[in-house]
């Protein structure tokens, strides 16, 4: 069974990979349905994750009389109500979409705002945690970029040297970011190849 799984992963991966380098060839004929199936399977995998969360994790909490089972109950009830509402209302309807725009967005936006406050509070002790030159550089960078983002230094246009200096500093993270992006790409490349050659088999769970 493990060999079969590996063969599926390797062959499908190889077909899709070859499609990158030989577009418009016969490989595309085999590649397109594979991609379609993978897209469908991704959706189904999402469904598996949701059902697992609701009926395995939270339902089990209720059965096990977990101290926070009430919240789990609220979660399951809301889940079922939403599904029922979705079945009766069209998912593309404005009424159903209000669940997202009027409930999900306000709650998550507020959570983000709370996170910002928490981050600022945590940053008060930045230098207490990392008392080395890198920590100090990070600390300075945070402050400078917050000030730059705020636009407070817009008056610097009257001082050309300051404008050039700020403009240059504003671009410095790009070099680091480019290095990181290249690092990420190399990492993805290595991991992808490891999966394709069978060094890593995350599907044999």
């Amino acid at each position: 069974m493990k060999v079969l799984n590996y063969l599926i992963a390797a062959i499908t991966g190889l077909i899709v990979l070859l499609g990158y380098f030989f577009p418009g060839t016969g490989i595309s004929l085999a590649r397109s349905p594979l991609l379609d199936w993978a897209v469908t399977l991704s959706g189904v995998a999402g469904l598996v994750a949701i059902l697992n969360l609701v009926f395995h994790v939270h339902w089990k909490r209720i059965q096990d009389k977990h101290p926070r089972r009430l919240y789990s109950g609220a979660l399951i009830v809301t889940f079922l109500l939403t599904v029922v509402a979705g079945v009766f209302l069209d998912p593309g309807s404005a009424g159903f979409q209000k669940l997202v725009t009027r409930v999900q967005v306000p709650v998550e936006s507020t959570l983000m705002a709370v996170l910002a406050i928490t981050l600022v509070f945590a940053s008060l002790k930045l230098l207490q945690r990392q008392r080395n030159w890198m920590g100090f550089l990070f600390f300075l960078s945070v402050i400078i970029f917050l000030v730059l983002n705020s636009g407070v230094l817009a008056f610097s246009t009257e001082i050309p040297i300051l404008t050039n200096l700020l403009s240059a500093f504003h671009r410095v993270p790009m070099a680091g970011a480019r290095g990181m992006l290249l690092g990420i790409a190399l990492g993805s490349l290595a991991t992808g190849i490891r999966v394709l050659i069978g060094s890593e088999k995350p599907y044999n769970g």
Binding site: M1, N5, A9, T12, V16, V44, L189, G192, L196, P202
Partner: peptide, 18 residues
């Protein structure tokens, strides 16, 4: 479910590499 996961992972790896 592993063969389905293998297909997903294989395609995902190829997409990441390409």
């Amino acid at each position: 479910g592993n063969p389905s996961m293998a297909l997903l992972v294989g395609v995902g790896a190829a997409v990441a590499v390409g």
